[in-house]
């Protein structure tokens, strides 16, 4: 094949110990209640496949293709010095909305930064139920007792699954649901040239990754509009949910954990090389280039590719068109 195909397959498993984590200090024994110490362990395991292929290699025509495929599975294996079957783990991932609310967790046996959420319940028409909202907006006095009061509204027990069946919705009802890091990555790049023309692009995809849509959870309800003497904009997610009320459980609902798989073209360019011009005193090439050409995704936010898995105040990624003129004297 004249060295035109190159490929590699790697399997890896990496154990990491003595990771820094915050642990609790026994009350009454020191001048603080938490301390940072080396206790955590985790493993990363996966497969990496690379392939490159020179499809055409002729004097006037050249075409190269590269592909890669990677899997990665990350798991926390130890978090505390003393094993604690009752502790869910270490809460991380602060969100916008309320103070001190965290939507992620490091828990033994799960990937780092897993989402730790309440399980949303849905009504007969498939809409998420909103704790605190009227059960029936057409007929506010739902129970027909002559007054519209809290009894005519959905309770948190209506809106969320009481996973431990103790009759109340509280932090004991949260569960671990998905994680931000993808299980699979794929990449594809190619460049092609014919005589003086050349073109190149790449494609990149990530699968089985999830993002917490904090923009929707914070802004997609009517209650967030008037804010202590001023007003804010209502997010269009309101049109889907009709949420009038918000609550801690609502912020931390699994409804807002969205699958954020995507396929993105990072760049595409075309170049023409004029070669030597003006009596061979200079050389000239010209091209057009597009960055961030497109992204295909079912994710409802502005960009599925959010570092850390919490989508709240990301800087929108621009699409950049540029024209290049290259002159060499």
């Amino acid at each position: 094949m004249n060295d035109r195909i190159y490929g590699s397959i790697d399997y890896y498993r990496k154990n990491t110990d003595d990771l820094l984590a915050v642990v609790d200090v026994v009350a009454g024994t020191n001048f603080t209640n938490e301390i940072l110490t080396n206790v955590g362990s985790m493993t990363n395991e996966g497969l990496e496949i690379e392939l490159s292929y020179i499809a055409i290699d002729k004097k006037d025509m050249d075409w190269r293709v590269g592909m890669n495929f990677t899997t990665n599975r990350n798991e926390v294996t130890k978090l505390t010095q003393v094993e604690d079957p009752n502790s869910p783990g270490i809460l991380v991932g602060g969100i916008s909305g309320g103070i001190g609310n965290n939507v992620q967790i490091h828990a033994v046996g799960h990937p780092t930064f897993s989402f730790y959420v309440y399980e949303q319940q849905y009504d007969a028409s498939g809409s998420p139920i909103n704790a605190g909202a009227l059960r029936d907006r057409e007929n506010p006095d739902f129970n027909g007792d002559g007054v519209v009061n809290a009894l005519d509204r959905y309770s948190s027990l209506d809106a969320f699954v009481d996973r431990n069946n103790d009759g109340v919705i509280n932090e004991d009802d949260r569960y671990i649901y998905e994680k931000p890091e993808p299980d699979f990555f794929m990449g594809f790049s190619t460049d092609f040239s014919y005589k003086r023309w050349s073109t190149a692009f790449n494609l990149r995809a990530e699968f089985d990754r999830y993002t917490y849509n904090n923009v929707n959870s914070q802004r997609g309800n009517f209650q967030s509009v008037p804010t202590n003497g001023s007003s804010t904009n209502l997010n269009s997610n309101f049109l889907e949910t009709g949420f009038t009320n918000t609550s801690v459980e609502q912020f931390l609902s699994d409804y807002y954990i969205e699958k954020a798989d995507f396929l993105r073209m990072d760049y595409f360019n075309v170049n023409y090389n004029f070669g030597k011009i003006l009596n061979e005193t200079m050389s000239l090439s010209m091209g057009v280039n597009v960055n961030n050409v497109f992204v295909l995704s079912d994710y409802s936010g502005i960009d599925p590719e959010v570092v850390g898995g919490i989508d709240n105040s990301i800087f929108p990624r621009p699409r950049i068109y540029s024209i290049n003129l290259n002159v060499t004297l």
């Binding site: 990771l19 820094l20 984590a21 990363n44 996966g46 890669n68 990677t70 990665n72 780092t112 930064f113």
Partner: peptide
């Protein structure tokens, strides 16, 4: 890709 993912996980979680 592999090492990038691991490095990013480390950088965010632990030092």
């Amino acid at each position: 890709m592999r090492s990038l993912a691991i490095c990013m996980t480390f950088a965010m979680l632990f030092t």
